Simulated scan of single mutants.
Amino acid sequence: MSAHVVEVGTELPPLVLHYTREDLVRYAGASGDFNPIHWSDRAARALGMPSVIAHGMLTMGKALRIVTDWVGDPARVEGYFVRFTKPVPVPDDDAGVDVHVTARVTALEDGLATIAIDALLGETRVLGSAQAQVRCG
């Protein structure tokens, strides 16, 4: 956690999450989620998606890193909530795609900070209502 005083409005250092098709394959193996929308363009397009999409839980977990990097100890995270609002399409190339994550403290009560997290793919919000509660004291 920052050496500075934590107060409502404190902004956490921004984070860029990078996704490639290789990341999706690795996550599928680790999670056991082999839904073809995460590896087959044909399956994704059959459901109206432009291409393969990243696993929602992968995006959720990676986005929380903005908080765990800041707080320094993941055990200080007492709660985390997100809604999946838009998928993260991952192109079949070497460049991949980036999601930009920002966060700020929105409330402080009894040593517990509530942190609002924004995750954007370009101008598109991919997580909605994302919040973490972190023990500060």
Rank of each mutant, 00 (worst) to 15 (best):
A95Q: 12
V101W: 02
V6T: 10
V25I: 15
Y80T: 06
E7C: 05
A44Y: 08
Y80Q: 05
L108G: 03
L64V: 07
V8Y: 05
V67L: 02
D94R: 13
V5I: 11
S2M: 09
D92V: 13
R65K: 13
T85G: 06
D118K: 11
A75N: 14
V97R: 03
F34P: 02
R135D: 07
I66D: 00
D110G: 12
G61M: 08
P13S: 06
F84G: 02
A3Y: 05
A103Y: 00
R76L: 15
G32C: 07
Y27A: 09
D41R: 05
D41L: 08
M57C: 11
E123Q: 10
G79A: 10
R83L: 11
A75I: 12
V88T: 04
V105S: 08
I37E: 09
A116R: 13
H100T: 14
A116K: 12
L24R: 05
I37S: 10
A130K: 03
V16S: 08
G72L: 12
L64R: 06
D33L: 07
T124W: 07
V16T: 15
A116I: 08
G137L: 11
V82C: 14
V8M: 08
I115M: 05
A113E: 04
D33S: 03
L47P: 08
T20P: 03
S31P: 05
L12P: 06
D110F: 09
P50W: 04
D92Y: 12
P36Q: 05
A43E: 01
A107L: 14
T59L: 11
V134W: 00
L17R: 00
Y80W: 08
A46Q: 09
V101M: 00
V6H: 02
E123R: 08
W70R: 01
L120E: 09
L112M: 13
H4P: 04
A116Q: 13
W70P: 03
G29W: 07
E78V: 13
H100Q: 12
D92W: 13
D73S: 06
V105P: 03
A116N: 09
R45L: 13
Q131V: 14
T85H: 01
L120K: 12
L120V: 01
G111H: 07
A130G: 08
T102A: 04
E109D: 14
H100L: 05
R42V: 15
R125Y: 00
A107D: 15
T20A: 06
R76Q: 11
A132C: 07
P50G: 13
F81V: 13
R76V: 10
F34C: 04
R125P: 09
M1Y: 08
V5L: 08
T10H: 00
T114H: 12
D23E: 10
A107V: 09
A107M: 13
M49Y: 12
W39C: 12
A63K: 00
A95I: 11
R42D: 15
V67A: 03
Q131H: 14
G137V: 10
L17T: 06
L12I: 08
I53P: 02
L17P: 02
L64W: 00
T102F: 00
V90R: 03
F81W: 10
L127E: 03
L47A: 10
A130W: 06
P14K: 01
R125V: 02
F81L: 15
H4R: 07
D94F: 11
G9L: 02
A103I: 01
Q133W: 10
T114K: 13
E78H: 12
H38Q: 04
R65P: 04
D118T: 14
D41S: 09
